[in-house]
Design a protein around this nucleic acid. Structure first.
Lengths: 205, 205
DNA sequence: TTTTATTTTGAACGTTGTTCATTTTATTTG
DNA sequence: CAAATAAAATGAACAACGTTCAAAATAAAA
């Protein structure tokens, strides 16, 4: 009976091997170099083997996208030490932006690329667990801000989504290269400046 | 001497024909159905002919992206009648969102897809005229708000970019299907609700 | 009419994601 | 241990993609 367990473990190991190769290709050369053939070649297996362990490319991209949320969580881990909810909210945005700009391809995969969502829809599982958890983390911080008397008269979910949209918009525009060629005084600093500007607005609440 | 002129006109006409077919395929079936072969087939020309009039696919997508900015400008045209800069700023955001959600594929092409920017870089023309014009339109409205005494102590460019990021973030998250599966009370209304929430924040400035 | 210039063609190339009959390897059974 | 069975790995093949380019078709000029 130890055989079935070993088989299962070996299956899991090869799955991980594929994923590690995919991740390496992905982080080093971007998504366009992350092809099934490149992955297979990197681990000395055939193309067909990859399809034994993953239904299709979307499944691989979804797995990578999940790893990305693990990375984001570790970025967020320092927030535990920030007691004041407003301060934590501010720090959360900074860290989110930092993560996005330090892991551009990964960020794109997590929040822009359609593949991970397509994969979820294809598996009839309309629950985006990783996104849900992250949004909940933001939302609970905002809830604490509301409880502390900030943002009087505002609703939790729309307010939280507004914060998310703001930092996501900055990352997205920067990553998709929309900040260049718009005649900004300092294109490379605009995201930081704009977020600082937003924090100034927040001082009134 | 009329020959050269007619030739030039015919060349322009075929170019437009290609572009119209591309646009039709694009708006009706999305970007994935807009292939060179589909375009060529739609106008009863061969694949090679398309490449006589456009360097590559990025060039076609860039031309479509430019048309998108024309559409956005016509959405914005009603803003001319709004005298108060703050009110115009608010309306601008609403219209921007409306445009984005009513023309999702086009919006993606204009503000997310890399192709149009790649095309610009390839032609050694680092000026994104369409984006520049649109950002300037926003920026000048924000400038008028500043002159009217709003947003005291804030800087023009970062503040403008912050507004842009906010509405872009909402459109982007919605279009890339990140608002579904996050356990929102009303996913379909979250963008409107969040923007309304933002307008409430603006009331203090 | 012949020569030259322009425009159009579509087969061909290299990639891509994906499939699946076949082979190889491992396990179980007699 | 050998034969039968199950599982895993293979890689050729398919369709579709963007792209190229020598050749053919057409138009203009001589």
């Amino acid at each position: 009976m130890g055989v079935a367990e070993r088989k299962a473990r070996e299956k899991e190991e090869l799955r991980d091997l594929i994923l590690r190769a995919a991740r390496k290709l992905f982080t080093e050369n971007g998504i366009e170099q992350t092809t099934i053939r490149n992955i297979a070649e990197a681990i000395d297996y055939s193309v067909g083997t990859v399809y034994v362990y993953f239904r299709n490319k979307d499944a691989i991209l979804h797995a990578l996208h999940s790893q990305g949320f693990g990375m984001l969580a570790s970025y967020f881990s320092v927030l535990a030490s920030v007691a004041d909810p407003m301060e934590r909210l501010r720090a959360m945005g900074r860290i989110y932006i930092k993560f996005g700009l330090e892991n551009r391809d990964m960020y794109e995969l997590m929040f822009s690329t359609k593949a991970p969502m397509t994969f979820l829809c294809a598996t009839d599982q309309p629950e985006w667990d990783e996104g849900k958890a992250t949004f909940t983390a933001l939302s609970s911080t905002v809830a604490q801000c509301l409880e502390a008397g900030h943002f009087a008269g505002h609703s939790l979910q729309p307010l939280s989504f507004m914060f998310w949209s703001l930092v996501h918009g900055m990352c997205s525009l920067e990553i998709s290269q929309r900040t260049q060629g718009v005649n900004l005084t300092d294109p490379s600093a605009i995201v930081d400046q704009a977020y600082t500007e937003f924090l100034k607005l927040l001082d009134h609440f």
